[in-house]
Simulated scan of single mutants.
Amino acid sequence: MNTDLVAQRFAQAQSSYEQQAIAQRRVALELIQRMQLHVPPHLQRILEIGCGSGLFTRQLMQHYSFDQLFLNDLYPKVKQHFDEDARIYWGIGNIETLPLPQSLDLVVSCSALQWVQQLEALFLKIHQALNPSGWLCFASYAHDNLKEIKALTGQGLDYLSLSQMVELLESCGYEVLIQEEQHLILEFEHPRDVLKHIKATGVQANAEGFRWTKSSLQQFYKQYQQFQLPGSQQYPLTYHPIYLIARKRP
């Protein structure tokens, strides 16, 4: 995966992301609600992977108190979405190659880990950075995510299933306390609106070398009709979020 391209696509979408990220906003709320069932509200050191425009970060800061919050993303312009705060520290770059802050109480990520290429290596690196019984909580996506787009264009990520993710976490030394998945269906008036949504959120940031032509767009619009909901004039787009609340085994 070209991480420079991923960063570029998300940077291009940053001005429109907040308005268009309907599913991601719902996922952020769902993740914070699940965290509150297990993770104590007062922590010292937190790392968030892939903070983006701060959609999840704001939920985190609203519901949790902390001494230090380390924020990570691929490109430095994300900083403009955050107010000055002496508790916030930045780590810009690919989380797979960046050194992690140590003695962490909590590592969180919302709608970002699906971009990680070597997930096992990252989970092990996080495990080393966590305090004993520290928390790893995240929302990512599974195989049905944006399935309509992948069916028509062949473009999309390869996702782990929920059970595969649980197995991977357990093999890396975590106890999984919550494992859940959902299907969120967004509806649009026309297939072109589906494409506008995808561009505005950057979720197809891996589509390197893929270019639309007038004829391929028309074919896409026509073929997308097969997904039209029965008795509806709307066109669906599927999101398949998964939620994991895990704890480092003592």
Rank of each mutant, 00 (worst) to 15 (best):
243 Y>R: 02
111 S>D: 11
187 E>N: 12
84 E>A: 13
105 D>Q: 06
94 N>M: 09
8 Q>R: 15
165 M>P: 00
42 H>M: 14
114 Q>C: 05
190 H>R: 09
140 S>K: 04
86 A>E: 15
4 D>F: 08
73 D>M: 00
250 P>W: 04
159 Y>R: 00
177 L>S: 07
52 G>P: 00
74 L>G: 09
207 A>I: 07
179 Q>K: 14
166 V>S: 03
121 A>R: 05
216 S>I: 09
189 E>A: 11
40 P>Y: 02
226 Q>L: 08
52 G>K: 06
138 F>T: 03
144 D>A: 14
107 V>I: 09
153 T>Q: 12
6 V>P: 04
174 Y>W: 04
149 I>V: 14
240 H>F: 05
241 P>I: 02
215 S>N: 12
28 A>G: 11
116 V>A: 01
156 G>W: 00
205 A>D: 08
196 K>A: 13
168 L>R: 00
18 E>Q: 11
123 F>N: 06
160 L>A: 10
246 A>Y: 00
32 I>S: 03
206 N>V: 14
139 A>K: 02
247 R>D: 05
93 G>K: 00
242 I>F: 06
116 V>Y: 10
53 S>I: 01
94 N>Y: 02
32 I>P: 04
106 L>E: 04
9 R>E: 13
221 Y>G: 05
164 Q>R: 08
210 F>E: 11
247 R>L: 06
156 G>R: 00
208 E>D: 13
148 E>G: 06
45 R>C: 07
213 T>I: 10
212 W>I: 04
229 L>S: 03
73 D>Q: 03
152 L>Q: 09
53 S>G: 05
70 F>K: 05
239 Y>S: 06
81 H>G: 00
122 L>D: 04
180 E>M: 07
193 D>V: 04
53 S>F: 03
74 L>S: 01
34 R>V: 10
95 I>C: 11
218 Q>C: 07
206 N>K: 11
135 W>Q: 02
137 C>M: 07
108 V>K: 06
150 K>S: 14
231 G>W: 07
132 P>K: 05
142 A>Y: 06
134 G>Q: 03
58 R>A: 10
109 S>V: 01
247 R>T: 08
